[in-house]
Design a protein around this nucleic acid. Structure first.
Lengths: 210, 210
DNA sequence: GTCTATATCACGATAGAC
DNA sequence: GTCTATCGTGATATAGAC
């Protein structure tokens, strides 16, 4: 099992099913995954799944909700702790990317299997996702207002930043040449460049801003 | 039908099936799409599909191959025509993004349904995709060598650029607030910033190539 | 709560008439 | 080449014993 994010889920069988579903969905996709496969990974019979979850889709919804809540929390925490807006952007992107790399299995399900959710579940998840976008956009807006960043199209740049961070879940492999932290650091630098950050690059010239 | 990229496919029924498959795969994903659905969109019976294609997977392979070949061609052409390396990067990203936005239906299938391909087909497609990456990396390398760009991690930055461009296919909607050309222009500007382009106008003044 | 066994259904793909 | 009809398979989900 790739992920420790569902440690709080009880009973034990429900958690094992959840972890099995994450792995299976990430590998094959929701529709190509069978309930037999999920139950098998959890060491149970196919029927046992339905004791803990009403449908296969409910499993996906559970994974998506917990995953999104976690990534939003990570992002929000990173933004809170940084002193100025350049540090906030760097910390936000770094933390968000690191989460998507470390939890790439969960993240892949969370980000790329949304279409398989039932309409009302989908709406709920999209609302969560919008919060991530708003946090990032807020950082960009502050930086532009304070003169630290130079961005014409804030919405468009936010969208691009989200794209960049989220897509890490698609290509990241733990056996690859970069650690989650290294990808986070690279992407934080790229984000500052995209934001037109003038104060950072050459020699540690930092102008504090609100 | 959203796409005119398969105009050369004959006979007519084979093309209609291909176009139906593109739409269906883009909407629901490969595994959630039924052969009945594809045939229905083409105005035919389920059995007719098997006159023109051996399996459902063969349809996906055909779409993926043609789509990838087109996007690589668009990218290669853009790179060839530009005079210097900054113009090359801008033109490459602009053209590549525009293709992914204009052909977002095809592009979505091409980029996000690869996992459903049979192993040998998958390998063939991945080889095509690698060529896109190499073109972009080449532009970055030239720019760094000539001193025009400032990039530490060329491979990583290439990966990020690819991510950014390709992900356009996931979120782009024709009814959204930006045209394919506008997204292309924005992303070309962002790409120059990511490359640390020093010779361009001061940060924030988006005088990108248009 | 978990199992074995199974109901029910829809899928991909084929057969054979025209 | 296209149709109607259908085969065989494997899917989700349920029933009922333990």
């Amino acid at each position: 099992m790739t992920d420790a994010s569902f440690g709080g889920v009880t009973p034990d069988a429900a958690r094992r099913l959840l972890l099995g579903a994450v792995d299976a969905f990430a590998e094959r996709g929701f529709h190509a995954t069978t309930t037999r496969d999920i139950a098998g990974r959890a060491g149970m019979s196919p029927a046992a799944l339905y004791i803990h979850y009403r449908t296969k889709e409910e499993l996906l919804f559970h994974i998506s909700r917990v995953g999104h809540e976690q990534s939003v929390a990570v992002l929000a925490e990173a933004v809170e702790q940084a002193p100025d807006c350049a540090a906030r952007l760097a910390a936000a992107v770094r933390a968000f990317v690191r989460w998507h790399a470390e939890h790439h299995t969960t993240a892949r399900v969370v980000q790329y299997e949304l279409a398989a959710l039932e309409p009302e579940h989908y709406e709920l998840i999209v609302a969560l996702r919008r919060r991530s976008e708003e946090i990032l956009r807020g950082v960009l807006e502050d930086g532009v207002a304070s003169g630290r960043f130079a961005v014409d199209d804030i919405r468009g740049t936010t969208l691009a930043l989200m794209s960049l961070c989220v897509d890490v879940a698609r290509w990241f492999r733990p056996e690859g040449r970069r650690t989650p932290d290294e990808v986070g650091a690279l992407y934080a630098d790229l984000a500052l460049r995209m934001a037109g950050d003038c104060g950072a690059a050459p020699a540690g010239v930092t102008s504090s801003s609100g």
